[in-house]
Design a protein around this nucleic acid. Structure first.
Lengths: 185, 185
DNA sequence: CGCGAAATGTTCGCATGCGAAACATTCGTC
DNA sequence: GACGAATGTTTCGCATGCGAACATTTCGCG
C-alpha cells in the first residue's frame, strides 16, 4: 500500500473514529510536556542570566566538549542560522568563544570560556528537567515501556520523513533505521 | 538523591544512574517528535500560504467556532501577546476578523472569514499530523499504554508546576490533579 | 591538475514567542 | 456608587527560529 505522504498533494489517511480520542490525547500530552518544560527551563535559566537555548548550549558543551557550529546545531535540533545568532549573543556575553579550525578552515569550534564553564557547573538543571524529575518517580517498568513505544513512534516518524525526502537508499543498512539520534563516542 | 524529588517512591528504588540513559532517551524522543512535527506542519502550511501557527489557529477555529483571544491562546498554548501578533497578521491576510464582544467589552472574538473557513476545509492536515499518522500504525494496545504513561507523566509535571506556584502541600494527593487539558463540551 | 558539487557558516527578512508594562473594562465590596 | 482588585488585550523590546541567498573552503572525480 502506498504510504499516505504528508507532503504529497493527496490527503493523509483519515483517522478512524474509534482511536481518534486516544490519538488526540497523546498528541496533547506531548505538546504539553514539551511546551511546559521549555517554559520552566527558560524560567530557571533567567535566574542565571541565561535564556533557555543558552542554557541548553552551555550544558551541551559541558557534556560533550567543544563542538563545531553544525554539530551543535544538530544536537540542539536547530538550524545553523539560528545557532549562529545564539552563539553571537553568548560570545558577546563572554560565555563561549569561536575558533576557526586549522584542519578545515570552514569549521568553527565553539568552546566554553571559564565563565561559561563555571555557569554550567553552577546551574543545577538540564533542559526538560521537570520531565526528567517526574520520570524518576515512575516505575522502572513504566519508564521502559514508555521508551519502547516512543522509540517505535520516533522511528516511524523518521521513516516517513526520510521517505518523503527522496528515494530511500536500499534498506540494507546494518542496524534498524537510525534512532532520532544515536549516542556516539 | 541529587535532588529532593518529591516523587521518588520507595527505598529499594534503583540508583538514578541505572535509569538515566532511559530518561535521556525518553526526553530525546519527546523533543524529536515535537520539533520534527512542527517542522513538517510548517512545510505543509507554506503550500497554502500559511505559517505553522496560522494553520493551527485556522484548524482550531474550524473545530471550535469563534473564540476569544484568551481562549485561543490557551488552546494553542501560547501567551496572549504572542497570539495578538498572529491574529494581526491573519487579519491583514483576510483570514479572520476581530469583533468586540457586546456583552463584555474587554473581550475580542476571533472569527474565521469565508476565506479562512475555505482554507480550513482545504488543508488536509492537523498540527502534529505526522505523529497522528504513525500512531495509527501502532497496535491499539501500544497506543493505549502510551497514553496511560504519558498521562501519568503529564499529571506529575502539572502537580510539580502547581506545587511551585503555591504553598507546598505534601505530594500524596490521592486523586491526581487535572489532566493538562480536559476536552470540553 | 582542475572544476563543479558539497559542506560549513553567516547574513537577511520575517514570523513567532515571551514577560513586563500600559490600557480598558468589569467585578467585588463596603 | 465609588474604588481597588481582577480580567482581557495590546504594545514594546528582545531572543529565538527558519529558509534563501551568499562566501569560503574542501571534496570528488575524471
Amino acid at each position: 500500500m502506498p504510504e499516505p505522504t504528508l507532503l504529497s498533494p493527496k490527503p493523509p489517511a483519515p483517522i478512524p473514529e474509534a482511536v481518534k480520542p486516544d490519538v488526540d490525547a497523546v498528541v496533547e500530552a506531548i505538546v504539553y510536556l514539551y511546551t511546559e518544560s521549555r517554559r520552566l527551563t527558560k524560567e530557571v535559566a533567567a535566574r542565571y542570566g541565561l535564556t533557555g537555548p543558552q542554557l541548553t548550549v552551555v550544558k551541551m558543551l559541558e557534556a560533550l566538549g567543544d563542538l563545531s557550529l553544525s554539530r551543535l546545531s544538530e544536537k540542539i535540533r536547530a538550524q545553523n542560522s539560528t545557532v549562529t545568532g545564539i552563539v553571537d549573543r553568548m560570545e558577546r556575553e563572554g560565555l563561549v568563544t569561536r575558533a576557526r579550525s586549522a584542519v578545515d578552515r570552514r569549521v568553527v569550534h565553539i568552546r566554553l570560556t571559564p565563565k561559561g564553564a563555571r555557569l554550567a557547573r553552577e546551574v543545577p538543571v538540564e533542559p526538560m528537567e521537570i520531565v526528567r524529575q517526574v520520570l524518576l518517580g515512575l516505575s522502572e517498568d513504566d519508564t521502559r515501556e514508555l521508551l519502547r513505544i516512543l522509540t517505535k513512534l520516533a522511528r516511524g516518524v523518521k521513516a516517513l520523513v526520510d521517505h518523503e525526502a527522496g528515494p530511500p537508499p536500499p534498506p540494507d543498512a546494518p542496524g534498524a533505521p537510525d534512532a532520532p539520534d544515536a549516542p556516539e563516542p
